[in-house]
């Protein structure tokens, strides 16, 4: 499989994954999540109005968790889609990256892996507060940054007019 095919298939597959995920989230989870955020915040202040700091604290903790989850779900959808578009554009620009085909394929593979792992790590943070999901997200974004920097150098190096 050539670099172009690799990036093209990777990009479109990631776009489909992102849109399917976004559609599922919009239909089955988003409205409930937003209701949860609004209701827990209201409950917290209503408890404060009733001079009940324990309930207020409990409700605000629930708000914190609901917002934490919501932000990650939306971020994952947005980042997967954005990165998939980057992959497709780079597939089309593959001829303009002036490095060997082998290096190009290596950079493309690292980029695709990073594009999958980085949002996946963010998504995993919903289920686990441990260091593993954060490590996956950091590793993913490092892969994206390093491979993209290599591609930028390849494009800037291009000598033919």
């Amino acid at each position: 499989m050539s670099t172009r095919q690799l990036l093209l298939f990777g990009g479109i597959a990631l776009a489909i994954l992102s849109m399917s995920y976004g559609l599922w989230y919009a239909v089955f989870a988003e409205h409930q999540a937003l209701d949860d955020i609004g209701m827990s915040l209201t409950s917290g202040f209503q408890a404060a109005a009733q001079r009940n700091p324990t309930d207020a604290e409990k409700a605000l903790l629930q708000y914190r968790q609901a917002k934490y989850n919501y932000d990650r779900q939306v971020d994952v959808h947005g980042h997967w889609l954005g990165l998939s578009m980057l992959l497709i554009v780079l597939a089309l620009a593959a001829d303009q990256i002036s490095i060997s085909e082998k290096s190009k394929r290596l950079l493309a593979s690292c980029l695709i892996l990073g594009c999958v792992l980085f949002p996946l790590g963010v998504l995993m943070e919903i289920w686990s507060n441990g260091p593993f999901p954060r490590a996956v997200a950091i590793a993913g974004s490092a892969l994206v940054l390093a491979s993209l920097a290599g591609i930028v150098l390849g494009v800037l190096r291009r000598s033919d007019p």
Partner: peptide, 17 residues
Amino acid sequence: HEAADYTILSEMSSGAA
């Protein structure tokens, strides 16, 4: 930012109580 969001709202709520 995420920690501050919760802390500030908590301060607001405890201030109101």
